[in-house]
Simulated assay, not measured.
Amino acid sequence: MMERTQRMEGLLLGTLAVAAFSLSLPATRAAVPELGGTVVGLGRAVVAAALAGALLLVRRERLPERRHWARLGLVALGVVVGFPLLSALALRDMSAAHGAVLVGLLPGATAVAAVLRAKERPSLGFWMASAAGLVCVLIFAVAQGAGGLTAGDGLVLLAVVAGALGYAEGGALARELGGWRVICWALVLAAPVLVPVVALSVGASVSQVSTRAWLGFGYVSLVSMFLGFFAWYRAMALGGVARVGQLQLLQPLLTLLWSALLLGEEVGRDTFGASLLVLLCVLAGVRSRVRQLPAPVVR
């Protein structure tokens, strides 16, 4: 009963995190044209690192054990640097809607990373549900006219790989450290490298940046790079990296919705049908059995 309760809590927190992350690409797209890809991609981590450092100091948290630092470095490389920077650079010349279709590959990539890094063994039913969801996303991509791969597409695909590794490693490490500590320490670890890079990338015209761009940057800094991971890594610690990761299949469709509502980007009417199909695949995936090594969940 307790295991089922933890799994349900994990799925609820995962859904909340996915809803928060679904605004990341539109917010990034709103900020990149004026602030630049490097400032948006890495500057968000600098802001989040300041918040994380303050939280750790207030709570008087001890440094993680030495055996955890390499794993925290992998988390930082994947979700603090890799995914934000690569996706921001791609969105200089790409719509958020187009990027959302490619990010639909992230759940499958996270499941593979979970097998490699989190020592999980999804069942055949899980893989079949995941494959069905990915097929839905790819069909939807064709319907939206994603077409052949461009340089921007390549950057997003590399971002997907980076994000999957960071998600899987962070989700596994959250069982030992607690989800919020994982992202906080990863941010603090990356900060000394990121601060000078961002400082050199800030242009003289920053004072002329629009309110819309600042709001987009503020969202990816506070929510996408900080608060969203509190729920996300906690969810993975409770529900398993592979199972909770499949909730990301909903993210590209939510992102398409936000792209249309907030950015005025054109999205086809078949979105609702695709959303229903993907939702069914998500439900099948999260109900499938995923074996993982037992470990204490840190609150």
Results as ranks from 00 to 15, higher is better:
residue 24 S to E: 06
residue 130 S to A: 14
residue 118 A to R: 00
residue 215 L to S: 06
residue 37 G to P: 04
residue 266 E to K: 12
residue 201 S to N: 10
residue 244 V to I: 12
residue 181 R to P: 08
residue 78 G to K: 14
residue 10 G to M: 04
residue 12 L to Q: 10
residue 102 L to S: 05
residue 232 W to L: 01
residue 260 A to Q: 11
residue 14 G to Y: 09
residue 223 V to Q: 01
residue 224 S to V: 05
residue 210 S to V: 10
residue 91 L to G: 06
residue 283 L to C: 08
residue 234 R to T: 12
residue 215 L to V: 05
residue 195 V to F: 07
residue 117 R to V: 14
residue 1 M to L: 13
residue 260 A to D: 01
residue 178 G to Q: 06
residue 209 V to G: 02
residue 201 S to L: 06
residue 294 P to N: 11
residue 19 A to N: 04
residue 222 L to V: 13
residue 212 R to N: 07
residue 297 V to M: 08
residue 186 A to Y: 13
residue 2 M to H: 15
residue 200 L to A: 15
residue 281 C to S: 12
residue 148 G to I: 00
residue 74 L to K: 08
residue 79 V to L: 10
residue 157 L to A: 06
residue 126 F to T: 07
residue 64 P to H: 08
residue 128 M to T: 14
residue 160 V to T: 05
residue 153 D to H: 14
residue 298 V to Q: 12
residue 114 A to M: 06
residue 28 T to M: 14
residue 17 A to Y: 13
residue 181 R to S: 11
residue 53 G to C: 13
residue 75 V to A: 06
residue 257 L to V: 13
residue 232 W to G: 03
residue 45 A to H: 10
residue 188 V to E: 00
residue 213 A to I: 07
residue 246 Q to C: 04
residue 71 R to D: 12
residue 228 G to N: 08
residue 151 A to M: 10
residue 256 L to Q: 03
residue 103 V to M: 15
residue 229 F to Q: 05
residue 74 L to R: 05
residue 151 A to S: 12
residue 108 G to H: 03
residue 176 E to C: 07
residue 122 P to A: 04
residue 24 S to M: 07
residue 199 A to Y: 09
residue 131 A to V: 11
residue 123 S to F: 06
residue 105 L to Q: 04
residue 163 G to Q: 07
residue 256 L to F: 02
residue 225 M to A: 15
residue 177 L to D: 09
residue 107 P to A: 01
residue 127 W to N: 03
residue 98 H to V: 10
residue 159 A to Q: 03
residue 100 A to G: 10
residue 130 S to P: 02
residue 75 V to G: 03
residue 130 S to Q: 02
residue 180 W to K: 10
residue 95 S to E: 14
residue 12 L to D: 07
residue 102 L to I: 09
residue 283 L to N: 03
residue 219 Y to A: 11
residue 99 G to V: 02
residue 27 A to M: 13
residue 280 L to Y: 00
residue 283 L to V: 10
residue 290 V to W: 02
residue 90 A to D: 07
residue 117 R to M: 13
residue 261 L to R: 00
residue 138 L to A: 12
residue 116 L to F: 13
residue 224 S to W: 01
residue 188 V to T: 01
residue 113 A to H: 14
residue 65 E to N: 12
residue 64 P to W: 12
residue 39 V to N: 06
residue 6 Q to D: 15
residue 69 W to E: 01
residue 39 V to Q: 05
residue 275 S to G: 15
residue 38 T to V: 15
residue 32 V to W: 15
residue 61 E to T: 15
residue 251 Q to A: 15
residue 102 L to H: 01
residue 7 R to K: 11
residue 247 L to H: 09
residue 13 L to S: 02
residue 265 E to T: 06
residue 79 V to I: 15
residue 137 V to L: 08
residue 230 F to S: 02
residue 78 G to S: 13
